[in-house]
Nucleic acid binder design. Sequence first.
DNA 1: GTTATGTGAGTGAATATTCACAAACAAATA
DNA 2: TATTTGTTTGTGAATATTCACTCACATAAC
Lengths: 194, 194
Amino acid sequence: MKEFSARQKEIIRAAIELIAESGIQSVTIKKLSQKIGIAESAIYRHFENKLEILLGILSQFRSSKMEALEYIQAADATEIEQLQMVFSERFKQFTRNPAITAVIFSEEIFQNDKRLADEVYAIMNSSLKMILSIIQRGQQNKSIRSDISADQLSLIIIGALRLLVVRWRLSSFSFDLTKEGEKLWLSIRQMIRA
Amino acid sequence: MKEFSARQKEIIRAAIELIAESGIQSVTIKKLSQKIGIAESAIYRHFENKLEILLGILSQFRSSKMEALEYIQAADATEIEQLQMVFSERFKQFTRNPAITAVIFSEEIFQNDKRLADEVYAIMNSSLKMILSIIQRGQQNKSIRSDISADQLSLIIIGALRLLVVRWRLSSFSFDLTKEGEKLWLSIRQMIRA
DNA sequence: GTTATGTGAGTGAATATTCACAAACAAATA
DNA sequence: TATTTGTTTGTGAATATTCACTCACATAAC
């Protein structure tokens, strides 16, 4: 896992904010340096080039997500409880850092570079695998319905979660994500229980 | 509804392809003109500026989607059948024009301009409303379950549809979208039926 | 005094857009 | 019929601006 200095983290945070404010096209070295309050050239003391900054965004998100997911997997909880934890943890993460939502469910913004695109794809799949394995265990001990495959259930669950977050963002965070997320979870639980 | 000349359509198509190939950042007047085989300046004979081209992408997608949705709403079919038609029509549309998937579920790529962002938001909401009204009717005549609100059901359904399409695209269209869409539909039908 | 971090000036390439002008064709006029 | 005028669609060169990145030099931290 990559370690970032304080300044590096600051640059990454500024980049995320720029994306959230006005899209990937507004992430320029000039705007980054202005946002932080240093000279453009100073950015290059901390990152080799712009690509490394963008990779930094993804790397940081990946590790904070992994942390949350490992904590959940380690918890002594039923599968349904674990799924609920995935929901509430993700929503908590997004509420704490709303700008990241502009980045993480918008795979297309990183499509201009293969390394970026691959990393985004990997992040997406890691979530999917985690949810999938919880559901499979739940189906084995009959706490989750088995008439629909685990693949399909995880697609449906993650799809709903993503769409709720996207709508939250496109509405300029105009509703309470935690509350709506809780409502969504109750609906999903109702639909997947055995 | 805006009418586009043959050349304008050609430019719009080229722009969509560029986005699909390597992201919004690769949509430059130079690349557009190269793809079409005319001079850069010739582009400006057909669009006032670059923004109008991007608006053209959205406008064209919106009208082709509206066409499909109106056709479905006019059809004499049960609510479940109508939902199935929404699924199959959308998937057919995407299979015919895969590049558009890089654009239409990636709201963030248009966030650098307010007009673009508003148009994207409107397109998303129009789908949602359509599905919502079908579900509400289905709940009234008890063909769709009522223990979960129509809002929640439509969020879940559209979320799954979107995610399937995004995965299809990120996997470089490596699976049969129509087939997987059909499977997804069967699962959803199973979950929402009264 | 060495290393880490910062600065300001400068680079060439890329960017969207504008310009004067030309070829092809149609319509109006002689 | 021959000539003038207008329109559409193109071109290539030029515009100002922005881009990521480099370099010589300064200052602060250890």
